[in-house]
Design a protein around this nucleic acid. Structure first.
Lengths: 209, 209
DNA sequence: AAGTGTGAACCTCTTCACAGCA
DNA sequence: TGCTGTGAAGAGGTTCACACTT
């Protein structure tokens, strides 16, 4: 299988999301240009991206929504399902839990960790919350490969180290630090400050300075 | 002034953040390769990005941290400061407020909006929270150009319309929808599901399938 | 000697345009 | 006819490499 870029993976995930919506609205077939406008990109882009996965549509009739979703599932999802760990059950952590709750059946947060004893050893948004001391053992036990860091800056690198030690291979990081990890660990940084400053900059441009 | 890409703007913001840290640690001069490793990119990239702003360093001695920060401030910030509106004071909204609190002096959330009456008409994280009905008038009054959408999917497009109507030119959107807005409005989407699926996909690859 | 600024090469991603098919 | 799949062209972003500076 050929290598597929993170950008394409991101869009494939987005297409699937839009397709799920369409299916729920009873849409059966879809054209590349329709998907494109739903996902905010060009039709050529959609077709190009779909080349990465096996499924191919038919001229005139476009793509079968259900089959295309199937194809995307096969390509994107681990057939065994995938457990995710969340570290940091503050506002951000809880937002993430609520957000992901039931959205993707085989990508579920199965363990949350926090240092605060008020939060540990209970169930929040359907997910068990453990004290951070148990991180290593639980991650190994549940065979978790993906970790979400929703902790304060100061704790981020330390937690990342612990996660990587326990075997995690991908991190979604919300703390404003560039984490240092082995090369075989994939990191996706979401830096709210950077995002907001970008918006601020361009909104200033758009408003005619 | 030449056009600068969103990617570069994002990195400039990141450099500034790292430089702020350095300055606080008493660092006075910095080389492009040091900034690069702090920001996780190449030294050439740093130098190329810095071409966009006025400030230029000196060979052998590199960049003066304080002066470079100044240059970035001049380039990125609105001299008048910039007010930001947040819509949706749930977990995500509160996380964002807490996160941005005091981080960037000229980019402050000066108004929050929510439909829930328990949240409105009080001050949360130092920011006044208004009922959504007052959105239009407050945005205009405070001359707000940037809006953050931390509302449920169903409400997102409607809120976006209201914000745009009131004169907002940039949106940071956390709802999983492609918003429809006029071309002169800049949108930055942060889709947590997409981010997480990207991480999941690549962590699976990294773990040897 | 060591680091910057930058033209040019390189590489990646996106769009074009068209053959082929239902 | 109208849409897909895709080679080829085009744009955009990143790195190279080196003249220039202190």
């Amino acid at each position: 299988m050929k290598k597929v870029s993170p950008k394409t993976i991101g869009r494939l995930s987005l297409y699937r999301f839009q397709l799920d919506n369409m299916r729920q609205s009873g849409v059966v077939r879809v054209f590349s240009h329709e998907l494109a406008s739903a996902a905010n990109c060009s039709a050529a882009q959609v077709r190009r991206d779909l080349m990465s996965i096996a499924y191919t549509g038919t001229p005139v009739h476009g793509y079968q929504v259900a089959e295309l979703i199937d194809g995307l599932d096969k390509f994107l999802d681990d057939p065994l399902g995938r457990n995710v760990a969340l570290v940091g059950v503050g506002h951000l952590g809880r937002a993430i839990m609520a957000y992901l709750q039931g959205r993707r059946p085989n990508l579920t947060i199965t363990a949350a960790f926090d240092v605060n004893e008020n939060k540990t050893n209970r169930i929040i948004d359907g997910c068990r919350c453990y004290p951070i001391e148990q991180l290593n053992s639980i991650i190994k036990e549940k065979n978790i490969l993906v970790g979400i860091l929703a902790v304060p800056v100061g704790a981020a690198q330390d937690v990342a180290d612990q996660l990587v030690d326990a075997g995690v291979k991908g991190l979604l990081n919300f703390a404003p630090v560039r984490l240092v990890v082995p090369h075989d660990v994939f990191i996706e940084d979401v830096d709210l400050t950077v995002c907001l400053e970008k918006v601020a900059y361009f909104s200033r441009l758009r408003s005619g300075m």
